[in-house]
Amino acid sequence: MPNIWIIRENELPAPRTGYDLVLWMAPRLPAEVQVRTWAGWSETPIIAWDASGAMLAFNAQPQEWKHTILAIGSGRVFKFQGHYIAWLVEADLRIPEIPRALAVAGVTLIISTTAHWTPVYLNPLWRAAQANQIWGMTVGEYPALFGPCELDPAEEGVMPLTSEGTLCSVSLDFNQLSEARRIFPVHQGLRANLYRTQKWWS
């Protein structure tokens, strides 16, 4: 169950131990050497990016996963502890085929910097998490974790994050997703035949 640290500060804070992955939404893309050095010191993989989608990822993991699905959108996919995690801009989340393709290909966590939507059901990352029964994590000013309603005792699909001052983290159990998919098998109900026959694309 990887422990993920979401950095909310504008600068990299002092490294801490006990985390398996660090995510940092930086105000502007930091110098490569700075992030590389920080990752080395903390011995923790880090993914850093800025609002434009420019991105840096360091350490032995996460390894970037080159996949043809990335031919569209600005997304990038990494393999981390045996799981595929993707980063998407909000505009790509508004096209439901993109998170669907990622989920069908095995991505179980999508990270994005979506705006603070109220109510939460208008957040396209929340919708992607429900439609595909995956985790969705929004980082930046308002970090949040979304998941299938089946995994939330309140059935709202919004999971708690641990927050202490500016420190925000979550332990993510990827294996829980199979329980949600057992209760409500969304992907099992997909009718690829039908969609291919009635294609809405040219």
Partner: peptide, 9 residues
Amino acid sequence: ALYQFGEDG
């Protein structure tokens, strides 16, 4: 490519 993932579930 997306909807080549298999036949009906």
